[in-house]
Design a protein around this nucleic acid. Structure first.
Lengths: 265, 265
DNA sequence: CAGTGGTCTAGACCACTGG
DNA sequence: CAGTGGTCTAGACCACTGC
């Protein structure tokens, strides 16, 4: 058989011709990319929820009228992007933050001696939580307009009794309508797990900008360091599917007993 | 045909049995991993040099007596690890630092406005370069013994006239025998390209530990900032093949006009 | 045009999981 | 045991490069 995915391929061919005419870019898109996009769509719409299994490779192959190998390659890429987790003999599952194996998905701060697991979970204290109208410097990175409703949260994380992280978190008011300080305080487990289960917002990737700066009075107070103490400033933007920014975080890290670890390749 | 790689598979099966008996770990290793290891070996021994093409997939398949698909999967992983670069229609090439498209392989410092390409190349000034016996805190991360010969280099990088990075680099004396300050100063292009072409040392991956600290007198002088100014401290260990550490770097970054950028996923 | 990597298929068999 | 993902093969065809 030359190709059983006639309909799909025809669609692709048509699309390619259109874009070829419009922009002189052939934009050839292999079948498995199309399949990947279709699976991604089902992930976004919540057809399969975090933690649940997606259909088996054979089922998906039948649904999309392609071979198992093509579905496989599509899922391979989704797995590489941590959107999905494969488990041999069991199935492929929608990735989730709700498994407390990975406590902090994006936190790269490590204790100088030993690893993250050796020091136990962080003690969390919520200092402030309020709803406000976004100033420009908050709205911009969240792709909102100035004045749109946002939720601001300030908290301190302490490791073994030492306050180490002071961070402000901003969330768009729309998707996170109904989130309260109390709900955050009583929730056990990662914040991103709560976002997932109660608001259907799954963080997929993030970007961080790191600087060094001196502690101001507020930071000094909460982190129990002298004013002027050098701190790591970490600004994070976290994205859901489709590169949609859903969280802005500005953290100040003490780095006297911990360090930010990064692997380059 | 069930399997044409009889010899290889037999070897694997034997090895698996041995380890099964010895450690109760089946340690099943798929064929493509074996092929990957063989290709990796040829990369290490320099059978194919950086920038050169490796044999085509068909040739390698013939050499190892496996199908093209199996070689393909092996190369896929090597490409994902940036050890090799595929170019459709041309071939697969050993990755190299010598293409000045990527000026600084591991440098994550970006200007706050615009991207790295917009500000042009850094001005480099070598302050110091000497041979010495490694103290313990240098020897350890390089897997050397205290007192072993190491080469120490200190330099400043400036962007658009502003000194921004002050860094010390330590290299093991053995592999880098004959490296002089003059050679470094006159070399155009990335330092890692020089290591590759003149010493056969190719950096493959790196780990960084990042902290915030206050500028001391030396840092203040070279970076033209007040003493006590918060700076980003970046300690990098760079590895060749086989996770062999080959470079230790301690850098101090000004982050008033630049930031360290990190992508998390 | 031949040669390269890239895609797709179909089918076999292996390793792992759970009932 | 059946069902899942994981490996391997063989062969076809496509897209890109350079002669």
């Amino acid at each position: 058989m030359v190709n059983s995915a006639t309909l799909l391929l025809d669609t692709i061919a048509a699309a390619n011709e259109v874009s070829a005419v419009a922009s002189a870019t052939p934009a050839f898109s292999p079948l498995y990319q199309q399949i990947k996009a279709l699976i991604l769509q089902s992930l976004q719409t919540g057809e399969w929820k975090p933690g649940e299994p997606i259909p088996s490779e054979m089922e998906l192959a039948a649904r999309f009228r392609v071979s198992q190998g093509t579905v496989r390659k599509a899922i391979d890429e989704l797995a590489a992007e941590n959107l999905v987790v494969r488990r041999q003999g069991k199935g492929t599952f929608v990735a989730t933050h709700a498994e407390h194996h990975v406590q902090y998905r994006f936190l790269r701060l490590m204790p100088d001696n030993g690893d993250a697991s050796s020091e136990g979970p962080a003690e969390r204290e919520i200092i402030d939580c309020k709803r406000l109208r976004a100033p420009a410097d908050i709205a911009r990175p969240l792709s909102l307009r100035s004045g749109d409703a946002v939720l601001q949260l300030r908290r301190v994380l302490a490791f073994q009794g030492t306050p180490t992280i002071l961070e402000d978190v901003w969330l768009p008011g729309g998707p996170f309508k109904g989130l309260t300080a109390d709900r955050l305080a009583t929730y056990r487990g990662p914040m991103y797990a709560l976002f997932e289960t109660e608001f259907g917002v799954r963080m997929v990737r993030a970007e961080e900008k790191i600087r060094a700066l001196a502690a101001d009075a507020t930071a000094a107070k909460w982190l129990q360091v002298p004013i002027g103490e050098p701190l790591l400033s970490v600004e994070r933007i976290a994205y859901t599917y489709n590169d949609l920014p859903m969280e802005l975080r500005r953290g100040l890290y003490r780095t006297d007993t911990h360090h930010y670890k990064n692997e380059l390749s």
